[in-house]
Simulated assay, not measured.
Amino acid sequence: MPTVGWIREGDLDAFYESTERTPDPGPPREPGFSCPFCTAHFPSQSEFQDHVYAKHRVERPFILLRGQEPSAHAVLRSPLAFSEIAVSNTGHAKIFLDGAGPQQVSADKLREIIAETYQSELKFELINATEQRATPVATQYGFSFRIAEKSDLKRVEEAFREILVSEEITRNSIGSFLSDKRTQGTGKEYASGLADYCLGILIKERPKGESLTTPFSRYRELYGRALDVLKDFPRPLAKLITCIIRFALNNFENRGERTGYWELDFAIELLSDPCSASLTRPLESATRRPVCPIDHGTGRMLELSKRLTAQQRWSPILDDECRTLAHSDLFDVIDHQKAFAIWAASAWRLGSTECALEPLTQIAEVYPFSRWASRYLEQAST
């Protein structure tokens, strides 16, 4: 019978068939988890995860400036001491100073560079490569150093007093301030923050002679922009204006800071929590002098707070005064909220719970006054 040659078994095939044997695989292995970083093996996933977390965790590197982590793109406007800079979980850093680099430095060297830099652009990457068999963990930051000389800041403040405090605020006076030679150089950004604040006042007050076309609501944007800049300058004037702006915008997060402006400090305490406001009113001093302008709406709220604080008892006349002010069409909505809050807090402090009900109802759901107003309203209603 004919056969096909290519399927005919040869001597070599017969040899392999007689010598090769597939080993017995044995029983199936127990399921387990092998650590990719060492030789450890675990029967359960939870034990494996606990092992990796305890022995091979590579934490994110980060930097702290005065106890807080900066944003990925931060602007530094005040000098930092070496002790105010902390770098954690970092083996080394890769830096790019003013576009040059990269340069590899230690964590302490990076701290020295940050503490000694005043006018530069610094980009750097913190790297944690403690686990050799794992991908290094890196965090990137960018610092823009705009630290001005104290003498330049003083010259800016001199120009501010002469042009925007002693004279009327107009678009021309703000332009004169920004073009003054004392507001140039490293203090220019400080001057721009002060100018934004004054421009915000101008837009909020809207004097007839200015013929403004900018929307009224934009004053809040200008206040916020000024706040972002001025809060970073360690100057008494900058601190005062930032507190005024926060008060004007109903932001009381920095409660407890003292500016030396008694009316403002007390109003902040009063509106943060009426029952805890305990500032002692100082004696009137003839040496007080204006150091910065305040918009009329905010100034009126401070006057109302001061006036009601001096009262020893509540009366329908005070009730009517507060009601008229709180419902005035001339104030912005956030000034209306402050008026209701001052009304409620003052009536409550003087023991007139019933008269506090009306303003408490208006602000019980309005942040940040809701933190205490809703509680007071509930107590007064029971």
Rank of each mutant, 00 (worst) to 15 (best):
F82C: 07
E84N: 02
S88A: 07
S88V: 02
N89L: 09
N89H: 08
T90N: 02
T90W: 06
T90E: 02
G91D: 01
G91E: 04
H92L: 14
A93S: 03
I95N: 05
L97D: 00
L97C: 12
L97A: 10
D98H: 06
G99E: 10
G99I: 09
G99R: 02
G99Y: 12
A100L: 12
P102K: 08
P102A: 04
Q103N: 04
Q104M: 10
V105A: 11
V105W: 13
A107D: 01
D108P: 04
E112C: 10
I114R: 03
T117A: 11
Y118F: 15
E121F: 09
L122M: 11
F124D: 00
F124K: 01
L126Q: 00
L126V: 01
A129V: 02
A129D: 02
Q132G: 02
Q132K: 07
R133D: 08
R133M: 13
P136Y: 09
V137G: 05
V137L: 15
T139D: 07
Y141P: 05
Y141E: 06
G142V: 09
S144R: 05
S144C: 12
F145I: 00
R146M: 11
R146C: 10
I147Y: 12
I147A: 10
A148N: 02
A148T: 01
E149I: 04
K150V: 07
S151K: 13
S151F: 14
D152T: 06
D152C: 12
K154H: 07
E157V: 08
E157I: 10
E157F: 13
E158C: 11
E158S: 10
E162I: 08
E162R: 14
I163K: 14
I163P: 01
L164V: 01
L164R: 01
S166V: 12
S166W: 13
E168V: 14
R171S: 08
R171L: 15
N172R: 07
N172M: 13
I174N: 06
I174P: 06
S176D: 05
S176W: 08
S176Q: 06
S176V: 04
F177Y: 10
L178P: 00
L178E: 00
L178T: 00
L178H: 00
K181V: 08
R182P: 07
T183L: 15
Q184S: 08
Q184K: 10
G185N: 11
G185H: 11
E189W: 15
S192N: 07
S192L: 15
S192H: 08
G193E: 05
L194A: 01
